[in-house]
Structures are given as C-alpha cells and as structure tokens.
Amino acid sequence: MDPIIATFIEENIVPNFNYWIYVILMMIGLYAMITKNNLIKKLIGMAIFQTAIILFYVSVGVKDAANIPIISHHGSEHHQMTDLSSETDSTKEIHNTIDKDKYANPLPHVLMLTAIVVGVSTLGLALAISQKIYKSFGTLEEDEILNKLRPGGHD
C-alpha cells in the first residue's frame, strides 16, 4: 500500500473509526432518501440515517476500559444525612470521590433512548402515511404517483 495512504489511515481513520462509520452510514441513508424512487426504500434510508446518528452519539460516550455507570453504595448514606441546603456541597463531594474514567458517560445513551423513540415514531407515522398513499394511488413508486397526479395522466 502506498505509504501516504497508510499513514493517513493510521492517523485519521483508525483512531476515529467510529466517526467514519457513522458518516458512511449516514451518507448511505441520505443517498437512499434522496434518490430512491420507491417510498419504502426511502424510509429504509431514513432508518439507516437515523441509526447512524444514534451510533455516533453512543460511541461518544465510550471510554477505554470503562464500566457500566451504575454507582452503588457510594456516598448514598452520606447523602441521606445531609439536608437540602447543603446539597450542592454533597454532590460535589460525590464528584470528587468518583473516578469518572471508570465509568462510561451515561448521558449520550440516555439521550439516544429518546432519539430512538422519536425515530421509531417517525418511522411508524411514515409507514402509516405510505399505507394511505398506497390505498389512494395503488402504488408506492414516486414517478407513477406523480404521473397519476399530472393533469391528463390516467387515474
């Protein structure tokens, strides 16, 4: 292999491979959404597109050799004892005592739970709409539908 390409892969693609994968997936999805003629294929593209973004977010939260972010015992008794006014101090303490490198970042995962729900409902709605389109046009091919809508086109 050409050494320039090799160094490029080593320096740019390998350390950031998650980004590359998400971009490639996203492009596949976008391509399908824009160019495909069949409405269902467009929707498949849309699903890939959304999944790519979900993967991107999830990969952001990953840390090397990190654990699931479930924190047990730690500081919980202490927490109960303090009253509300000193709450901020206590949370600070928790932060200080937890080694954050040990745990994966949970927030992107949580966000993606919401995004998955959004994606699923979008997909569901889109499928329902395409059902309605199929019922009234008898086809799911975009060009045929447009042909029928054109004045003078048979319907």
Partner: peptide
Amino acid sequence: RRAALSSF
C-alpha cells in the same frame, strides 16, 4: 390524497 404525498 395529495396531502398524504406532500406529507410524506
């Protein structure tokens, strides 16, 4: 039905 297509 045109609305359905536009919505899609």
